[in-house]
Nucleic acid binder design. Structure first.
Lengths: 343, 343
DNA sequence: CTGAAAGCGCTTACAG
DNA sequence: CTGAAAGCGCTTACAG
C-alpha cells in the first residue's frame, strides 16, 4: 500500500535525499553513477512520489480545474462535452497534471467554486460551459487565476479562449452549395445567444454577400441545436419559401430533423434540396443520404485548451491568447457532394 | 492570490496554531471565546486551508479517481456518462472530496493509471467503464485500494458495485405488456456481453416463464444499444414473426429505431404492436407515440457510487457492497399505457 | 556535482 | 481546554 519515500530511496542508493530528488526530477547535474544507483533504487523499491509533499514544497498544485456549468438537458444530449473532456484529459495527462472536474449544480455550489478556484487548489481553470453570459471566468481572470474558456466568449471579454472557426466553416459550406448551382439557400440557425451559432449565421450571410446574392429574411429559421428544433425550422422554411433549393444547417443534429421533414414532404435530397450540416459528428454518416458537414475536432480543442492554459501558468503572465481551430468541409451525398459512392 | 496561512490566523486570533487548526476542523473541545476569535480571524483574513499541507499531514488525499475507460464511440453517444458523472460530482462535492477524472486512451496510459491509483494519490476509485471484462478494478481491489464500479461486473468479481435493477425493470415491462393482452412478445436485446443487457434479457424470459408462456427463439433479436441496431433488429423480428404484437426493447435509443421501422412497415403503434423501452431517457418523450419505458436514475447511481466508496474508505475495510437501485415502469402511449392523453 | 538544512502549511499525540 | 513540538515527504538555495 504505502510507497517508499524519497529518503528510503536515497539511503538505498547511498546518496543524499537532495540528490535523489534531483534524479527523480530529471535535473541533469548529477554524476552518472549516482544517477544510476538512484534509478535502480527507485525501480527496486517501487518508489512513487508523494504528490501532496511535492505540491507543498513547490507551491504548485499540478492540477487544473475543469468546470462544466451546464444545464442537465444540454449536458446529456450533446456529445461535445465528453469529447472535449477527452481532449483535455489527454493533454493534461501528457503534462502529468491532474484533472479536477467541477460540475456546480446550484447557486451555492457556484460560490464555493469561486473560492475553490481562487484558493490555490488548482494552477488554473478551463471552462467548458457554453451559455452566453457566464461571469465566473472573467472574475477569476481578474483575480489573477489563469483561465481559458472553450468557445468564443461574448464580446468585451478579456479571457483567453480556444474556438473552432465557425465563421470560416459556414462560408465553406455555403460556397459549396453555390458551386453546386444552388441560389435559394436557406439557413437553420442555432440559438443566437451562443457565439458559435451567431458566427455560423454570419458566415452564411457573408458567403451570400460575397457571391452577390441578397439575403432574404424568410430564408432564415431558428433552431436550438436539437433534432426537434431542426425539424420545426425546416417545416417553417418549406412553408415560407417552397422554392428553397438548399439549406445550410448549423448543426448535424438539426440536420437530421430537417432531413426527416424533407422526406416526409416528399422533397428529394439532394436533387431538390441540398443540405449541409455542421460538426461532422457520428450521425452524419448514419443519415440517408449521408450528410455533408463541416468538420471540427472537438478533441483537438480540448488539447489546445490545455496548452493555452499551461502557457499562461508557466509564463505567469496575463496575456490574452486566442486560438481558432481550422474547420473543413466534408462533402457527402446530401449536397450532391461526391460523384462516386464514396462517403 | 496567496491565502493567509493557519499561522497567521492563529496569531491574529491570539491563540496557538493547534487551537486554530481545531476550530477550523470543527473539533468541539475549544473554549467559546477562542473559537469565536479564530472564526473572526478566518473571515477577516479570507483564510483558505492549503490542501496539499492538509493531505500531507493527514496522509489522505481527499480525492477520488473516477475512471472512464471507454471507446470514443460509446462515450460520445451515450448520455449515461455525463449523467453518472454529474451524480458523482454532486456526491463528492457534498463530502468536500475532489474528483480526479481519468480517461486512459492507450495501453501505456492504462499502465500509468494503475500506478497512479495504487500510489496513494487518491483515497479510492470509481470505475464507469461498461465493457465486460475489465481487469483493473479487480487488481486494485486486490492491492487494497477501495474500489467501486458502476454496473454489475462479470460474475466471479469481488469488487463492490452499484447497479440499477435491470432484471426487475424488464419483468415489469413485460408484465405490463401481458396485462395489455399481448401474448406474442418479442425482445430486442443489447450486447449480451454487457451485464445490463444480459439482465434485461433474463427479466424478459423470466416474466414470460412466470406467465406460463413458452419463450421462442425467433422472438429474440440482437441490437447494440444504438438506434441503427434497434431498427435492424425490428426488421428481423417482423420478418421472422410477422404476428408479433409487442416488443420489449432493451434501450430507448434502440426503441426509436424500432418505432421508425414499424412506421415504415405500416404497423400502427400500439394498436398492432406495443412497445416498451428501457432507460426513460429524454428521447422517450419525443417519439411518436411517446414511448413507455423503464425509468432508472443514473444520477442517483452516481451518488450511490460515491457513498459506497466513501464507506469503504472510512471503514478501511474490504467488505463487498452491492447496491441495486429500483427501476420503475413509466407507461405511455407506445404500449397503450395511458387511457387519457397524459404522458 | 553533492549534502546539510531550512522550509512548504498543516495535524496531532503529549504534557499540562 | 490549550500550546510546544515533532512530523508528514518533498524541494532548493547555499556552501562546498
Amino acid at each position: 500500500m504505502r510507497s517508499a519515500t524519497l529518503d528510503e530511496v536515497a539511503r538505498a542508493a547511498g546518496v543524499s535525499r537532495a540528490t535523489a530528488s534531483r534524479v527523480v526530477n530529471g535535473t541533469t547535474t548529477v554524476r552518472v553513477e549516482a544517477r544510476e544507483s538512484v534509478v535502480e533504487a527507485v525501480e527496486r523499491l517501487g518508489y512513487i512520489p508523494n504528490r501532496a509533499a511535492h505540491r507543498l514544497a513547490k507551491r504548485r498544485s499540478d492540477s487544473v480545474g475543469v468546470v462544466i456549468a451546464e444545464t442537465t438537458a444540454r449536458l446529456f444530449n450533446d456529445p461535445f462535452f465528453s469529447e472535449v473532456l477527452r481532449g483535455i484529459s489527454a493533454g493534461l495527462a501528457a503534462h502529468k497534471m491532474q484533472l479536477a472536474l467541477l460540475m456546480p449544480q446550484s447557486e451555492s455550489e457556484e460560490n464555493l467554486l469561486e473560492q475553490y478556484l481562487a484558493g490555490g487548489h488548482v494552477d488554473g481553470a478551463i471552462f467548458v460551459s457554453l451559455h452566453g453570459d457566464y461571469p465566473l471566468p472573467e472574475r477569476l481572470h481578474a483575480r489573477g487565476v489563469p483561465v481559458v474558456v472553450a468557445g468564443e466568449p461574448p464580446r468585451g471579454s478579456r479571457v483567453s479562449y480556444v474556438d473552432n472557426d465557425n465563421h470560416g466553416g459556414a462560408i465553406a459550406a455555403v460556397n459549396h452549395l453555390l458551386e453546386k448551382g444552388r441560389r435559394t439557400i436557406g439557413v437553420i440557425n442555432g440559438p443566437l445567444e451562443m457565439t458559435a451559432a451567431a458566427s455560423r449565421r454570419l458566415g452564411y450571410l457573408d458567403a451570400l454577400r460575397l457571391a452577390g446574392i441578397p439575403a432574404r429574411a424568410e430564408l432564415e429559421a431558428g433552431g436550438d441545436f436539437s433534432r426537434e428544433g431542426g425539424a420545426r425550422a425546416m417545416r417553417e422554411l418549406l412553408q415560407r419559401c417552397p422554392e428553397v433549393d438548399a439549406v445550410f444547417v448549423a448543426s448535424d443534429l438539426m440536420a437530421v430533423g430537417a432531413l426527416e421533414v424533407l422526406r416526409t414532404a416528399g422533397r428529394s435530397v439532394p436533387a431538390e434540396v441540398a443540405i449541409v450540416g455542421f460538426d461532422d459528428s457520428a450521425v452524419a454518416l448514419t443519415t440517408d443520404p449521408p450528410l455533408s458537414s463541416v468538420r471540427q475536432s472537438v478533441e483537438l480543442m480540448g488539447r489546445e485548451l490545455v496548452s493555452v492554459l499551461l502557457q499562461a501558468v508557466e509564463a505567469r503572465d496575463h496575456v490574452l491568447r486566442r486560438v481558432i481551430l481550422a474547420t473543413e468541409l466534408v462533402p457527402r451525398q446530401s449536397s450532391g457532394g461526391l460523384p462516386t459512392g464514396k462517403s
